[in-house]
């Protein structure tokens, strides 16, 4: 009986010691410096949910001049364009004011491309997976694939310009850093950054740093280098707010009922009546 009691006593006495050890171990783990997120995905940040861009679709709100949106006459931005590209931008602004600068998106099926995909209305999803991050814009088609599996950009002979280019990235703590090249030039009218007529060349190289500022805000800071179009680095920051729990994302069948097709011959956007007749048959502006 005495032996049994002593054993019980020893056992009970050991409980606080074990608890102290466990608590101490927990504290040590908590206080350890935060390691870079592993590519294996065991500690990738949670960017789930549905997000919407803050502000209108003027791409560079830090340099915007004039009141209104990207369609509004008089509104323009001030990228560090060289003289040649400033002239091109001013020409586009005039065409925009005259209603003669059709948006490639109005063709329905043309991707918004990068960096415009970061500058769209409607909503976004940011899918973080161990080896890729996908930026999915509802206003589509719009998917940007960012490879985070350690690969480099392809060899030059395997890269041809596309709307979204080629993006490879890595995690620096909770910040996604990705590098994008091989983009279409705006020169051929295939892509624009916003409806003021912002242009980039096929030499554009963009480094994006993306992170969660708080539970409801994601920031994307793009540093744009373009030795054909820009005389300096162009840094643009966009933010996105998280929408309410349960928000749904829908498909975006742009061609489903597109009553604003582009009249290629006259380089303008049409307005069609219910039977398909062209309502803006003359130049309206």
């Amino acid at each position: 009986m005495m032996v049994t009691l002593r054993h019980t006593h020893n056992f009970l006495r050991s409980i606080p010691t074990a608890s102290t050890l466990l608590v101490g171990l927990g504290l040590i783990i908590l206080l350890l410096p935060k390691a870079d997120y592993a590519q294996e995905g065991d500690s990738l940040p949670d960017w789930s949910g549905v997000w919407a861009m803050n502000g209108g679709t003027v791409f560079d709100r830090a340099t915007v001049e004039g009141q209104g949106g990207s369609n509004t006459p008089g509104v323009r931005e001030h990228p560090p364009y060289n003289a040649e590209y400033e002239v091109k931008y001013v020409r586009n602004l005039q065409l925009r004011d005259d209603g003669l600068f059709p948006d490639p998106l109005s063709f329905c099926g043309i991707p918004s491309g990068f960096p415009r995909i970061m500058n769209l209305p409607d909503v976004y999803e940011f899918a973080v997976t161990p080896k890729q991050v996908w930026i999915m814009a509802e206003n589509g088609p719009g998917i940007l694939r960012i490879y985070t599996d350690g690969r480099e950009h392809p060899d030059p002979e395997m890269m041809w310009p596309t709307h979204t280019g080629d993006s490879v990235g890595h995690w620096e703590g909770d910040t996604l850093v990705f590098d994008t090249v091989s983009l279409h030039s705006s020169e051929e009218g295939r892509t624009i950054i916003d409806r003021t007529g912002l242009y980039l060349s096929d030499a554009a190289h963009i480094v994006t740093r993306m992170r969660k500022l708080d539970e409801a805000t994601i920031e994307a800071q793009m540093t744009i280098e373009d030795n054909k179009a820009l005389r300096d680095l162009w840094v643009v920051t966009k933010t996105y707010r998280k929408l309410g729990e349960g928000t749904r994302v829908y498909d975006y069948a742009c061609a489903g009922n597109n009553r604003n097709p582009v009249d290629v011959e006259n380089n303008r956007t049409l307005i069609l009546g219910p039977d398909g007749e062209i309502l803006n048959s003359d130049i309206d502006r």
Binding site: D98, G99, N260
Partner: peptide
């Protein structure tokens, strides 16, 4: 007040 979110120009 914000036709910029539109699919196309509202110039017409």
């Amino acid at each position: 007040v914000q036709p910029t979110i539109a699919h196309h120009s509202f110039a017409g």
